[in-house]
Simulated assay, not measured.
Amino acid sequence: MDFSKVQAQLLTRFEQQFKLPRSYIVLGGAGFYLLLVFLNFGGIGQLLSNLAGFAYPGYLSLKALKTSSSKDDTRLLTYWVVFAALNVVEFWSKAILYWVPSYFLIKTFFLLYLSLPQYNGAEVIYRKVLAPLTDRYVDGGAPANDLLNKVQEKTQ
């Protein structure tokens, strides 16, 4: 059975049982999720924040693997590079960041900005922050190619 059909059936049952619009359950669920992230009981804020940054892009990535177009692949690969860079920076600055009030709530909104196609935030962050740092090493420039050639020569 299709996941979207199951969702529609659950929301229809909610409407019939409580005599409320289905948007209430969606908004209520999102509000409860963000409240849990904000309160961060037992460190659950970090888990829920990372889940927000992983679930939807992961789903889109699985769908993109089934298509022949490379446009969605490039957009998603850009997201995963930015997501990984953010996690590395977060790991090394953990002692400072966790003192910021509502850090995981801010991080959750930032991850949504990065992942949602209507904002295309990952592309913006990649172009403005990561590309200037990495282009001289990865963009087919001489240092990267020379290093790769030297490694290949040593292994042969």
Score class of each variant (00 low, 15 high):
residue 96 I to E: 13
residue 147 L to Y: 09
residue 19 K to N: 11
residue 148 L to Q: 05
residue 102 S to F: 15
residue 7 Q to T: 09
residue 13 R to T: 15
residue 48 L to S: 05
residue 24 Y to N: 14
residue 156 Q to T: 06
residue 147 L to G: 03
residue 69 S to V: 01
residue 124 V to W: 02
residue 141 G to E: 14
residue 91 F to Y: 15
residue 67 T to C: 01
residue 153 E to R: 07
residue 122 A to E: 00
residue 43 G to C: 06
residue 72 D to T: 05
residue 105 L to D: 00
residue 16 Q to T: 13
residue 121 G to H: 06
residue 151 V to T: 07
residue 107 K to Y: 07
residue 62 L to P: 11
residue 134 T to D: 06
residue 155 T to S: 14
residue 30 A to V: 15
residue 4 S to E: 12
residue 48 L to C: 07
residue 4 S to H: 11
residue 8 A to V: 02
residue 127 R to P: 05
residue 141 G to M: 12
residue 80 W to V: 00
residue 135 D to C: 06
residue 91 F to D: 08
residue 61 S to H: 04
residue 18 F to H: 11
residue 113 Y to A: 12
residue 35 L to Q: 12
residue 57 P to A: 03
residue 95 A to F: 09
residue 124 V to E: 06
residue 24 Y to L: 14
residue 70 S to C: 05
residue 84 A to M: 09
residue 25 I to C: 06
residue 115 S to D: 08
residue 43 G to M: 10
residue 104 F to D: 00
residue 96 I to T: 13
residue 30 A to S: 13
residue 40 N to W: 04
residue 4 S to M: 11
residue 31 G to H: 09
residue 80 W to Q: 00
residue 97 L to I: 03
residue 12 T to I: 04
residue 126 Y to L: 02
residue 1 M to K: 09
residue 64 A to L: 03
residue 63 K to P: 01
residue 148 L to E: 05
residue 21 P to V: 01
residue 36 L to M: 14
residue 9 Q to C: 11
residue 48 L to R: 05
residue 16 Q to D: 11
residue 148 L to A: 09
residue 74 T to Q: 12
residue 63 K to F: 03
residue 101 P to D: 05
residue 11 L to T: 04
residue 54 F to N: 01
residue 13 R to V: 14
residue 68 S to H: 10
residue 74 T to I: 13
residue 145 N to D: 02
residue 55 A to D: 09
residue 111 L to E: 06
residue 144 A to W: 04
residue 147 L to W: 04
residue 39 L to G: 00
residue 100 V to P: 01
residue 130 L to I: 14
residue 19 K to Q: 15
residue 43 G to S: 07
residue 33 Y to F: 15
residue 121 G to K: 04
residue 84 A to H: 01
residue 111 L to C: 03
residue 64 A to P: 08
residue 105 L to G: 08
residue 131 A to G: 01
residue 56 Y to A: 13
residue 38 F to D: 07
residue 131 A to Q: 14
residue 27 L to Q: 07
residue 87 N to I: 04
residue 116 L to H: 08
residue 26 V to C: 07
residue 73 D to W: 12
residue 101 P to M: 08
residue 75 R to W: 08
residue 50 N to Q: 08
residue 47 L to N: 06
residue 97 L to W: 02
residue 121 G to I: 05
residue 7 Q to I: 13
residue 60 L to I: 09
residue 123 E to P: 04
residue 151 V to E: 02
residue 37 V to T: 10
residue 114 L to M: 10
residue 125 I to P: 04
residue 122 A to L: 00
residue 141 G to N: 14
residue 78 T to S: 11
residue 35 L to H: 11
residue 37 V to G: 03
residue 5 K to W: 04
residue 66 K to F: 03
